[in-house]
């Protein structure tokens, strides 16, 4: 929004994280910019999930710098992250099936009138948010989440991030379980989210999807940053090479670390 697109809203420098003897993240650098979709890609075990959990405060980093809006911050738990304006939309969505859409979108941050829940205020805001994202697939915000399709659930989870005016939204494999039409809808929503000035981080295994929607691409390889490039700088072949070997052509920084057979 007001932020200069050239200034990253989130900047991670030299992040290290290990679990006992296993170094999962090694000097990882990562940036995300307002109004842009930054794809975070990498093979299984490359450290994507760990990196996201460090961003969200589920894990605390061992060392390295965590800068948000240019200032160094310490994120020790998910609450710290959400008070900064960071929202993570998890792969398993973290929605309560027995609650309706409004109740899920406001979960943990309910609006009150005295000690009583202010249902109509919450319902109106939820409706407005979905409308502002041009979501038409959801008819009533009072239907239970258990009655929603995968795409609709994803939509609710993303709308939740918008509702809370999040500055950075991390989407963990949002289309992994979706069919063609719903994937298109969700990617459309991802784009609209970025167009509102939100910094979007998209974790995905799907190359086509990444190349279609991302503005920037960050590649992790065996716990290290293999590349951070603009979408225009790579083609699909190069991207696949970065993911599988950690480098391009003869330059293979990851090869010395021992590629599993």
């Amino acid at each position: 929004m007001a932020d200069e697109p050239s200034e990253p809203i989130l900047e991670l420098r030299g992040i290290n994280k290990s679990f006992g003897p296993v170094d999962v993240l090694k000097r990882v650098d990562f940036s995300a910019y307002p109004g842009q979709v930054t794809a975070l890609v990498g093979d299984n075990g490359a450290g994507k999930s760990t990196l996201v959990k460090c961003v969200s405060g589920t894990y605390t980093i061992d060392s390295g710098e965590y800068l948000f809006e240019g200032r160094q911050v310490h994120v020790h738990n998910p609450r710290d992250a959400s008070s900064l304006g960071i929202e993570i939309v998890y792969q398993d969505l973290a929605l309560a099936d027995n609650l309706d859409i409004v109740q899920n979108m406001f979960l943990g941050r309910e609006r009150l009138k005295g000690i009583v829940l202010n249902e109509s205020s919450m319902e109106q805001s939820a409706q407005e948010t979905l409308a502002s994202l041009s979501v038409r697939t959801v008819k009533s915000v009072r239907q239970r989440v258990s009655s929603l399709s995968g795409g609709q659930r994803q939509t609710v989870a993303i709308a939740k991030a918008v509702l809370w005016n999040s500055k950075l939204v991390v989407l963990d494999e949002p289309t992994a379980a979706l069919g063609v039409a719903q994937t298109a809808q969700v990617l459309d929503l991802v784009r609209r989210l970025a167009d509102r000035g939100v910094a979007v981080v998209l974790i995905s295994h799907n190359m086509n999807e990444v190349l279609q929607v991302a503005d920037r691409i960050a590649v992790l390889y065996l716990g290290e940053t293999a590349a951070q490039v603009a979408r225009s700088e790579v083609n699909q072949q190069q991207l696949v090479e970065l993911i599988t070997t950690g480098g391009l052509g003869t330059d293979r920084p990851g090869a010395t670390n021992g590629v599993p057979a």
Partner: peptide, 22 residues
């Protein structure tokens, strides 16, 4: 909730009809 329901468009339409029964 890790297993979202059938992704195809038809179910989506069916869901929308079912939505009325919220």
């Amino acid at each position: 909730p890790t297993t979202p329901r059938e992704p195809d468009v038809q179910t989506d339409a069916a869901n929308e009809r079912a939505i009325v029964a919220s």
